[in-house]
Design a protein around this nucleic acid. Structure first.
Lengths: 335, 335
DNA sequence: TTGTATGCGTTATCAT
DNA sequence: ATGATAACGCATACAA
């Protein structure tokens, strides 16, 4: 494998000159540039990433840190990752993914990678209200952007979807259609309340109900698909059953439709259904499902751009961004 | 940031000794080991990844190379990636993802990263029958494992799902239920035939039909969701409409169900539906959908393990693996 | 433009 | 048998 010294010899210049040509760090005589470029061509030379990283003190790697085993997170994750990849393709950052297992091993692994300076910056997914990973990153001085946010975000960078607004938009949509009894349904265990995402949606939903003068009501939830179908069935079998259901994610929508169909209830005549998710399947459901969603891709693009700005030493225009939700009304609420 | 020299001074030993302790390369007196470990603790020392990579000539990074903008690939991709991540978490390899844009830029980007030795090995996703990326990897001597395979695989490592067998399993299942007229439906453009995955499924399907004494029949396809729904509707409106439809992916299943419901056809009484996909939504559809699928997670685990074996200089037990499909029969064919 | 010190760990060689 | 020393890998950046 040729090194920068081979190129220098081949072109009859010094290694410094070759380096300047590669990085366009300095003005050089065009003739010299040409000679060096030809030499690189002839030897098919590429600078070794590790050598470059050691010399410059930076790796040109951005790491995507996220937990594994999160219910209903996969579709979001792959859309998000793809969007980040597209932004980074325009830069010379590479993308590393760190799926972290359970704590506390997760934090140690993160600490090790951060301390080894294996990356220049981190995109932190699925941020929790009190997130030990944030402490690790903060202590080490590693630049990072959170997707979601903590309880205290002073001095931190984040991009988050405006879930309170999502809840408001959803509730208003249903209220305008005449619904007065609306219940939130979600699939997940107790622990995920620690995640700001779910937390904000749930509390935002309650607030939105109150703002519309409706009485708040506990969300229905279950950790498994089968359990959730059952729970929704129970809910719909009540005498005073809700006229509308807001499902917190794709899976919850499917469970709700299933429960309704089992009871012979028509959607939306007997019960309207709305989902908080950007699912490609929603238009294909019977009936097509109304959705309020944040674009995972947009979160990816904005957070990646923000982090790149920071790493390049530029000041990002905003360091704390809330993205507004979108509502797409379909037959599951419109009829 | 402390270096290995700081640790050596703190522990009163030489840097060589510290290195031996870190890498367990040599037998050292327990007392020395302890002193060094304590020093590392005190200074919270972590060896710099770049320095290590430069010195050892390897990065301890495995790259996942895949195209973007592939229809119906996302669910597979994120399941696959997660499985790879779990395998690599047991090793000290890190995972980098390279979503490549369109050719020919994609090949150049791959070439650059490979030549820069930014990774030690590659998992190549969505392998095509004649894949320029394979040539790039082969030329450079970069170890790699393909997911899918080429037309000529001599000397190459791959893990692939046995799609011919998937097709056979599906056809046999339907034939046993009495179906004699079965059509394959898929959503995609003309170009994706170059991918071995689709190619093998389509040809395998034709062969399976012939093996059962049925007349082969051209698959129905369209590049968009709306187009596919329309195409399936046209198909089902025929006088001699098929009694069973095999849908090549999740999206095709949804389109097929949609078309059937629009025409007022009952599933499976009027038309049976089977999907080639491992979708968490299938059990929730109305009716729950029969599936023949390969486990994306299994492909990830097997390929990651194989690559690690190769990188560690061990001979993998098998270098060309076919994974058998699974059939889960549900109401969409059983009634 | 050039020469050269610098960044940091690894490992072969040499000394005890 | 242990541990110290120094060469090595490769690009960067500053002084000359």
């Amino acid at each position: 494998m040729p090194t920068i010294y081979d190129v220098a010899r081949e072109a009859g210049v010094s290694v410094g000159t070759v380096s300047y040509v590669i990085n366009k760090t300095k003005r050089l005589r065009p003739e010299t540039v040409r000679r060096v470029e030809e030499a690189m061509q002839r030897l098919s030379y590429y600078p070794r990433a590790a050598a470059k990283a050691l010399a410059r003190g930076r790796s040109n790697v951005i790491a995507l840190v996220h937990p594994i085993n999160i219910v209903d997170f996969q579709m979001f994750l792959s859309t998000f990752t793809l969007a980040v990849g597209q932004v980074l393709a325009e830069t010379d950052y590479r993308l590393a993914v760190m799926p972290l297992l359970r704590e506390p091993k997760a934090d140690l692994e993160l600490e090790a990678n951060v301390s080894a300076r294996a990356m220049d910056g981190v995109l932190l997914l699925h941020t929790q209200l009190h997130d030990p990973r944030v402490e690790v990153l903060r202590r080490s001085g590693m630049p990072f952007v959170m997707i979601g946010r903590c309880a205290d975000n002073s001095g931190l960078c984040f991009v988050d979807s405006d879930l309170e607004e999502s809840a408001r938009v959803a509730v208003r949509h249903l209220v305008e259609l005449g619904h007065r009894s609306i219940v939130l349904v979600r699939q997940e265990g107790a622990d995920s309340m620690a995640t700001s995402v779910v937390h904000r949606l749930v509390t935002g939903f309650q607030e939105a109900l109150e703002a519309e003068g409706l009485s708040p009501c506990d969300p229905v939830r279950a950790p498994t698909v089968a359990g959730l179908v059952q729970a929704v069935e129970d809910l719909l079998r009540c005498k005073e059953r809700p006229t509308a259901i807001a499902a917190a994610n794709e899976s919850a929508v499917m469970c709700t439709l299933k429960a309704a169909s089992r009871l012979g209830l028509r959607v939306p005549q007997d019960v309207a259904v709305l989902g908080f998710a950007d699912s490609p399947l929603f238009p294909l459901l019977a009936p097509p499902c109304t959705a309020v969603f944040d674009h995972a891709a947009e979160l990816g693009r904005v957070s990646a751009r923000m982090l790149v700005e920071i790493l390049e030493g530029r000041e990002p225009e905003q360091s704390q961004v809330l993205l507004p939700p979108r509502l797409i009304a379909r037959e599951s609420t419109l009829g």
